[in-house]
Design a binder for these strands. Structure first.
Length: 410
DNA sequence: CCTTTACCTAAGCA
DNA sequence: ATGCTTAGGTAAA
């Protein structure tokens, strides 16, 4: 069943890289549905349509891949024009949000400022709630490649087939319906597909949503977009509480859903990464009698409140940028541009900040040495004292023995 | 309240 | 090669 689609023409989304960067935004673990189909190009399914996006130097282009008219596999009616699809993308990327303005505000925080030049244009996607719920049930104790493969398996096996794109073998499917995931025997099927203990969560969550949906329908007469989507209208706390009732959805996953599909930009999913960011970069003090500091519910709340305090109503967006900067796969975003020798000797004394002079081809700057940067993703040196500095230009430095690696913002 | 344990799997590493 | 660890957690004790 090869259902080749007809590609449209590239059209401008009219958005600069400072407002949206696809490589990070699409691959930082928000959505697991985008397929890389070229240099700086990604393709996925949105609202039943196959759409490709391409990052250009000063803009992003998009094009639709329409099913041929009368195609027996066609699942949606063809659009009058690609232009009619523009609002879908504007909604998905929440382009009404002034990201550059937010970045400027967030740079008040020095740790954020340090990362910002390497990680510009990272947005929170406004995802489909159903898709969001089930992909993040898959995310527990898991890694991005495997989550991606599991989500893909879900779509290929239970989602409606839409088509392929010329030149690429990948079959594009819509996300499975909740009804399909609630089906009998789904748990054992999913286990065979390698979902492990998440299989039961998926089936139970789907069944729970189905119950709510039918209750809603009998009450209201007609569905107003479904129970899950309606959670968008609840305040954050209530919305979160409802989500936690789903099997396999705990505090962290509930916050992911709140942030990524429930219009709650202040939600802070605290996972192991964020827990470490809080301790390492913000030296958060936790009053606890316990000898071993672990991520307790109390800490969870404290960290969320701290982020909201520091970054405001869109704290979840800021959190996501710091999170992305912490991902190993983006460590190269501070990639080495050139090496220069350090003129003065560096000594690090705990958290004491010192200054040294560095000579590069065209840069002489002061270097600040924070104390604990061991796990900083921008850092390539293994154990010695790693160095950051706020230079006269957008340059970033790491100390090796006697050499500095100068990194340039991408 | 906080900590510990079980729950699946696959890739990475010693 | 075989065994161990780890990876966006959740639920139950």
């Amino acid at each position: 069943m090869f259902n080749l689609t007809t590609p449209g023409k590239w059209e401008s989304l009219r958005v600069t890289p400072a407002d949206l960067r696809l490589d990070t935004t699409l691959n930082c673990g928000q959505s697991f549905r985008w397929v890389k189909t070229g240099e700086e190009e990604w393709t996925s399914v949105l609202k039943g349509k196959i759409v490709s996006l391409r990052q250009e130097e000063s803009d992003i282009l998009f094009k639709l891949h329409e099913q041929t008219a009368g195609d027996e596999f066609a699942t949606t009616a063809p659009l009058e024009s690609q232009e009619a699809f523009r609002p879908v993308l504007e909604d998905y990327f929440q382009l009404n949000v002034d990201l550059k303005g937010l970045y400027e505000k967030w740079k008040m925080d020095l740790n954020f400022k340090k990362k910002a030049s390497f990680f510009a244009g990272i947005r929170i996607l406004r995802q489909d709630p159903t898709e969001n719920v089930f992909t993040f049930i898959c995310s527990s104790c898991n890694n991005i490649p495997r989550i991606t493969s599991m989500v893909n398996n879900l779509c290929i096996n239970y989602g409606p087939y839409i088509g392929t794109v010329p030149g690429h073998p990948h079959p594009y499917h819509g996300f499975p319906s909740v009804a399909r995931l609630a089906g009998d025997g789904m748990e054992s099927e999913l286990r065979k597909l390698g979902f492990g203990y998440r299989a039961k969560y998926i089936m139970k969550a789907a069944q729970y949503i189905m119950e709510k949906e039918t209750a809603l329908k009998t009450d209201a007469g007609d569905s107003n977009g479904g129970w899950l989507e309606n959670l968008r209208h609840l305040p954050y706390e209530e919305c979160r509480a409802e989500l936690i009732k789903l099997a396999g959805v705990g505090p962290k996953v509930a916050d992911c859903i709140c942030l990524m599909s429930m219009d709650k930009p202040g939600a802070i999913p605290v996972d192991t990464h964020v827990w470490q960011i809080a301790q390492r970069d913000y030296k958060m003090k936790f009053q606890t009698r316990a000898k071993t500091k672990s991520l307790t519910p109390k800490h969870y709340v404290a960290i969320g409140d701290f982020f909201r305090d520091t970054f405001g109503p869109f704290a979840g967006w800021a959190h996501s940028i710091l999170f992305t900067a912490d991902l190993n796969q983006f460590a190269q975003h501070g990639r080495i541009e050139k090496k220069v020798a350090i003129l003065d000797e560096i000594r690090t004394e705990g958290e004491e900040k010192i200054s040294i002079k560095v000579e590069a081809a065209q840069v002489i700057g002061n270097v600040e040495v924070p104390g604990d940067m061991k796990r900083d993703p921008d850092v390539t040196a293994s154990k010695k004292s790693e160095v950051h500095f706020e230079p006269p230009s957008h340059v970033f430095a790491v100390k090796t023995e006697t050499m500095m690696n100068i990194h340039r913002a991408v």
